[in-house]
Design a protein around this nucleic acid. Structure first.
Lengths: 353, 353
DNA sequence: ATCATGAAGTCATACGTATGACTCCAGTTC
DNA sequence: GAACTGGAGTCATACGTATGACTTCATGAT
């Protein structure tokens, strides 16, 4: 049996720990921890700090997150609940949110939630519950606040999870960060009324959530101020084929609307198809508007008049509010302005209308 | 001083632990752990199991993830690296990936990476490094494999992280899961050649990655088999305005191409704009094709002939491969078929061409 | 010489779980 | 009655970190 002292120094296959670094640097594990936490001022000399850093680098040491999570009682991970990432708007929200989170050393886990109708509890509950205890907070979008907060359950003690809602009814418990879509919708409606439109069709989303209720309320409120103005309605899922059908119903009415105000750009794309199928020219025979300013808005011919929603900013501000909440500061409800973009799809109604 | 025995039972504000459950159920902490892990067969009687479950429910107990991560040396969290979530294709990839992950109790953290040019290392490295030790593996898409694997560093011992690449050069280290875009591109090119096109313009992405190199290689290979066929090129970022300009250059050439084969649907949307600006009708004067089958493909008029990429499936299969890898099984390289969708944007070239 | 002071570290412990090694006991077998 | 068996649990410990309490030592003040 060879002398063990002659054996090459054992290279551990496992990830190095603070103890390994301590041994190499000739200090205690505490010191390593202090250095890595940046809390060594007045406790560790600069020379020792350098030695620890050098040792850490040669070993490729990274603090074990699981251990610090356990010790600190925090995971620096938050959950982002969005309806579907296949909608680029929520891609933007995520990007904004995780940039802000990263800046404050938080990770973001996404849970894409089924949208329709309201919220299915089952599919949300299970992966969510699994991650439950590994989360510090939740940033949720476009959903019934009560369902979600029921899920977060302040019922059982110590179970409540800090929550910020995006695009949701303010004043219902959780802090909210919204896009001021009411303002945008008023400006849009005013724009159409100013062009002379009086018979306006609304192609609305079949999702019952704050943002769509608000869009409709702002529309009606603005319309009611214009004498003689009237509205007709069609409801549709937010997909092109269905929206085409829904918009078609409005266009087939005896007193055809001269403008279609759609709840988002995808629905507007359907409206274009319906108009085209009936030989109606946009904007000469029919004005069309959307909401979102997605890629399709500028691909449509003519380009779509729409309200640009600041998704990226929404994510930033929403995440900022959540992180403030986690720091113990109570964030104020926020409302971000949308922007009316007037493009080629709106014009004065035909004179014979 | 009142008798402490008379004080009401202290209700802890903190989350209950397995110890609390144990006390309530009158068993040891070990037993609680065994029950929750489902490993009690032959070690705990059914009556006791029920008692533990009841106690857990009344207290609202959830195992602390940080503690089990530490104990088990695993976090059940993987990183998904994608270029940008604002591209709905990657939204689909994420959805597929996280569904598969959830089914096996894994969480997915996204890191949206800057695409251009190649990969910036700095921005990737920092949030990534932070999460580094909290990850079990990485599923990465569309990037230079060497940059990323350098980041994952098998250099320092014990630092390597299991990695699966999507849409990347096979055989360069990590297992790959790709879309067989070469096959799709061959079919697409054959389709155009069959219609009679011989002068074909290529509007290619300026990103240098496997998928785009492969598209081009398959195109050229197919074209070279057709006598007299020739190709012209324009390079562009994947955004509508730039693509419009690039496609315009091709259309302004003396011997104008009769078809434009674009590297994706967004670029194709730009080609539509360029054609329209020059009074060219699609498909009578010019055929156009894309790749992806995004929403825009069916919004364009006429609808776009394109290759549908199974993004959702890519995410599923990619995540499956990664989880297999984590289980110690070596996954095989996979290639998923794309689907050629012939729509209204392709037809025979004009006879006078 | 004695004491206080502050710098530079180390010690010991707790976070909550999972699990291999035990113990204990009621039957059973010889 | 002794030895064994298997069921039902418990014990003790380790995972890697962060941090309040402690120690040590040199310096300067008294």
């Amino acid at each position: 049996m060879p002398d063990p002292a002659d054996a090459p120094p054992p290279i551990p296959a496992t990830r190095p720990t603070s103890k390994d670094v301590a041994k190499l640097a000739g200090v205690s594990q505490s010191t390593v921890s202090l250095v890595h936490a940046g809390k060594w001022a007045g406790r560790v000399s600069e020379r020792t700090v350098r030695a620890v850093i050098d040792a850490s680098n040669t070993l490729g040491y990274r603090p074990n997150q699981a251990a610090r999570h356990l010790r600190l009682g925090t995971t620096r991970t938050v959950l982002l609940v969005v309806p579907a990432l296949t909608n680029p708007f929520f891609g933007a929200v995520h990007t904004g949110a995780s940039e802000t989170a990263a800046r404050r050393d938080f990770a973001v886990v996404i849970y894409p939630a089924p949208v329709q109708p309201g919220y299915e509890l089952e599919p949300v509950a299970s992966p969510f519950a699994a991650a439950h205890t590994a989360l510090d907070g939740v940033l949720a979008s476009s959903t019934a606040a009560d369902t979600l907060s029921g899920l977060l359950g302040t019922g059982t003690p110590g179970t409540g999870l800090p929550l910020v809602m995006m695009d949701s009814e303010p004043g219902t418990g959780a802090p909210t960060v919204n896009i001021d879509i009411a303002d945008g919708m008023r400006r849009l409606t005013t724009h159409l009324l100013g062009l002379g439109h009086r018979r306006i069709g609304r192609v609305v989303s079949d999702i019952d959530s704050w943002t769509f209720r608000t869009r409709e309320a702002a529309f009606r409120e603005t319309l009611s101020a214009a004498p003689g103005a009237e509205a007709s309605y069609a409801r549709t899922p937010m997909a092109v084929p269905e929206a085409t059908t829904a918009a078609g119903h409005l266009l087939d009415r005896p007193r055809r609307p001269t403008a279609l105000v759609c709840d988002d750009d995808v629905i507007a794309a359907g409206a274009y198809k319906a108009a085209r199928a009936r030989g109606l020219r946009i904007p000469q025979d029919l004005s069309v508007t959307g909401v979102d300013d997605l890629l399709v808005a500028t691909v449509l011919e003519p380009e779509l008049t729409t309200i640009r929603l600041p998704g990226h900013r929404l994510g930033e501000v929403g995440m900022g509010a959540l992180l403030d909440l986690l720091d113990g500061r109570q964030p104020e409800d926020a409302a971000l302005p949308g922007e009316l973009l007037v493009r080629g799809s709106t014009a004065a109604p035909p004179t014979n209308a």
